[in-house]
């Protein structure tokens, strides 16, 4: 399913003294199979944009096509849209609420109108996809689990409804490095399941560089780049002109280049940069 965003604009509190433009004339397309990063400073419109994607915000002007469904139409079937586009908010473990893990994960599918047995099966499948065993954790309170496990339960709760598109808002914030890697590897793995397309909103350029094939940059509500991580970090001046950062390995590459050691590699992760350095040394 393709997501096509056309001339999307959004203003908070229009025609009041508090009027604030959050999105200005944004157009881009996310193709099935993409892992798309959305980056930008705090207040650049990332969250407003991502909330449009599963119709938590109704469109004021412009258009979003989710496959054949036009979200700007009044009559759009919101339930169907939200079943197709799963949304994981920041610090999702704070949104766990049920007294057992099983009930928490089954809550979504049950709201989409399937019976208890089917919801329970969906919960078991979702938990196993995130690497948890329902027999082991199903009857525990979600609040007995570790931080990383709680976040995985929250992800299971979203994917239990089998969304085709997964929108993740800062999915690794607050986790330690091992926990971050675990979640990102999990997202990668989910893409070989029913989840076809992933959209990650993040401040962490290392993650965007390593895990996304495309990246969109927002700046004060405008789309100022729609490119690949290589294009953004190695072949544009967008980072220098915004409050964004380079991925750590690209910083090292740039430091080397300043000293006359030019590495021919996108350097989007440690492996690529090491290969680039080795290649140059072998010349």
């Amino acid at each position: 399913m393709q997501i096509k965003i056309e001339n999307l604009s959004y203003v908070y509190s229009p025609r009041t003294p508090f009027e604030k433009t959050a999105l200005k004339d944004i157009s881009f397309t996310v193709n099935e199979g993409d892992t798309m990063g959305i980056v930008g400073a705090t207040g650049s419109g990332k969250s407003t944009l991502s909330r449009h994607l599963n119709a938590l915000i109704r469109i004021q002007s412009g258009r979003i096509m989710l496959g054949d469904a036009d979200l700007s139409q009044r009559k759009v079937d919101l339930k169907a849209v939200r079943k197709k586009v799963g949304m994981l908010f920041q610090f999702p473990e704070y949104q766990l609420f049920a007294d057992t893990v099983r009930k928490d994960v089954a809550f979504g599918p049950m709201n989409f109108g399937i019976n208890d047995a089917e919801a329970s099966a969906a919960a078991a499948e979702a938990l196993s996809l995130v690497g948890l065993d329902i027999a082991e954790v199903g009857d525990k309170s979600p609040f007995e689990l570790s931080g990383g496990q709680m976040r995985r339960v929250a992800i299971a709760g979203v994917i239990a409804s089998k969304p085709e598109v997964l929108v993740l808002d800062e999915p690794t914030a607050g986790l330690d490095p091992a926990g971050k890697r675990e979640i990102l590897e999990l997202v990668k793995k989910l893409k070989s399941s029913f989840v076809k397309t992933v959209i990650i909103v993040s401040h962490n350029m290392d993650e965007i560089a390593e895990y996304c094939n495309r990246v969109a940059v927002l700046d004060e509500g405008r789309l100022i780049a729609d490119t690949t991580p290589d294009g953004l970090f190695n072949h544009s001046d967008v980072v220098d002109n915004t409050e964004l950062d380079y991925p750590h390995t690209v910083k090292i590459k740039r430091k080397l280049a300043k000293r006359g050691f030019v590495v021919d590699s996108p350097a989007l992760n440690v492996e690529q940069l090491t290969e680039g350095i080795l290649g140059r040394l072998a010349e």
Binding site: D176, P177, A178, R181, H248, T249, I252, V270, L273, T274, I277, L278, L281
Partner: peptide, 20 residues
Amino acid sequence: AGLELPAASRISLKLAEAGY
């Protein structure tokens, strides 16, 4: 202990491993 070395450390180890 579940920790991750800084990028510079990891790269220096890999270069040393490659014989440099």
